[in-house]
C-alpha cells in the first residue's frame, strides 16, 4: 500500500514538474495569473547571433579589430563613458608601441593639481593612468544625460548576461517603437530623452544612438567604417577591456587540461594495475 503511495507521490511530483515545464501557461490555470505581461516581456529581444574572433576554446584577439574598437571608443563613447579599470599602459598588449601609448594617454585629461599653485586642475594623461570619466562626478554625469549615469564600460560584457553580442545588438538595435507596441502599451512609449531599443532590458534607454552614420570614425587600416563594423569592433574592444587575460586563460587551459588528461589516463592504468590482483569488482 505504502509502496503504491510512494510511487503515486513520486509520480505526482514528477508529473507536476514535467507538466509545468513543458506546457507554457498551464500553471495559470491552477494558480492564478502570472504577473501581467509587461511590454518589456513581449517586445524585449535576445542579443543577435554574432561571432567574434575570441569565441570558443581556440579563439584569439584580432589586434587590428581591437585597435579599430579603441578608435571608436575614443572618438564616440569616451564622450560619456569611462574605462576606469583599464590603464593606458595595458594598450601595449593590443599592439601599440610605448610612444603610441604615451600619445593616446596624452589625448585624455585626467584630474591633477597645478604644480605651482596646488590647485586642482586637469593634466594630460600618462601611461600609468586609467581611462578617465569625462564628468567631474556622478551628479554632473546624470545632469548631462537626462538623469541617467553612463556606466563605466570596463567590465560591460561581463556585467550583462549577453556579453559582447549584447553590446553589439544594443548599439545596432535603435529603431522606432513598433506601432503594435504603442497601440497595446501606450505607457511604454519612450519618454522624453529616452530611445526605443528592444535589446535594452526595459526597452527605453537614455543613451542616444552613439553610432548613426557610416564613416563616423575613419579607420587607419582602411576597413570600411559601417555602423555594423564599428559596433562590432567596439564590442570586441570592450571584451578585451573586460578580460584582457581571456586568451591567455584559454591557451593556458589547453596545455593544462591536456596534461591532466594524460595524467588521469596514467592514474587510471595504475589503478587498474593495482586492483588487478584483487578478485571481484572494485
Amino acid at each position: 500500500m505504502i509502496r503504491i503511495g510512494a510511487l503515486a507521490l513520486g509520480f505526482f511530483f514528477f508529473a507536476t514538474v514535467i507538466f509545468w515545464s513543458f506546457i507554457p501557461g498551464a500553471y495559470t490555470h491552477f494558480f492564478g495569473e502570472h504577473p501581467p505581461k509587461a511590454a518589456e516581456k513581449v517586445f524585449h529581444l535576445e542579443p543577435k547571433d554574432v561571432s567574434f574572433s575570441f569565441d570558443g576554446p581556440f579563439g584569439s584577439w584580432d589586434a587590428q579589430q581591437l585597435q579599430r574598437g579603441l578608435k571608436v571608443y575614443k572618438e564616440t563613447c569616451a564622450a560619456c563613458h569611462s574605462l576606469e579599470q583599464v590603464s593606458f599602459r595595458s594598450l601595449s598588449e593590443i599592439g601599440y608601441t610605448e610612444a603610441e601609448v604615451k600619445a593616446i594617454a596624452a589625448e585624455f585629461t585626467v584630474p591633477g593639481v597645478n604644480p605651482d599653485t596646488g590647485e586642482a586642475e586637469g593634466r594630460p594623461g600618462l601611461p600609468t593612468d586609467k581611462f578617465p570619466s569625462p564628468y567631474a562626478n556622478d551628479i554632473a554625469a546624470a545632469a548631462a544625460n537626462n538623469n541617467a549615469i553612463p556606466p563605466d564600460l570596463s567590465l560591460m560584457p561581463k556585467a550583462r548576461k549577453g556579453g559582447a553580442p549584447y553590446i553589439y545588438s544594443l548599439l545596432t538595435g535603435y529603431q522606432d517603437p513598433p506601432a503594435e507596441l504603442l497601440q497595446k502599451y501606450p505607457e511604454a512609449k519612450p519618454g522624453p530623452g529616452l530611445n526605443y531599443n528592444p535589446y535594452f532590458k526595459n526597452l527605453n534607454i537614455a543613451m542616444v544612438a552613439p553610432l548613426t552614420v557610416d564613416g563616423q570614425v575613419t579607420y587607419d587600416d582602411g576597413t570600411e567604417a559601417t555602423v555594423d563594423q564599428m559596433a562590432k569592433d567596439v564590442s570586441a574592444f570592450l571584451s578585451w577591456t573586460a578580460e584582457p587575460t581571456m586568451i591567455e586563460r584559454k591557451r593556458t587551459g589547453f596545455w593544462w587540461i591536456g596534461f591532466l588528461i594524460f595524467a588521469t589516463i596514467l592514474a587510471y592504468l595504475s589503478k587498474k594495475q593495482v586492483w588487478s590482483s584483487i578478485k571481484g569488482k572494485d
Binding site: P57, R249, K250, T252, G253, F254, W256, I257, L260, I261, A263, T264, A267, Y268, S270, K271
Partner: peptide
C-alpha cells in the same frame, strides 16, 4: 588519484573555459 584526475579535468574546463 584517478578520481582526483577526473575531478580536476571537469574543474579546469570550468575555470579555463
Amino acid at each position: 588519484g584517478f578520481g582526483l584526475g577526473v575531478f580536476l579535468i571537469l574543474f579546469s574546463i570550468v575555470v579555463f573555459y
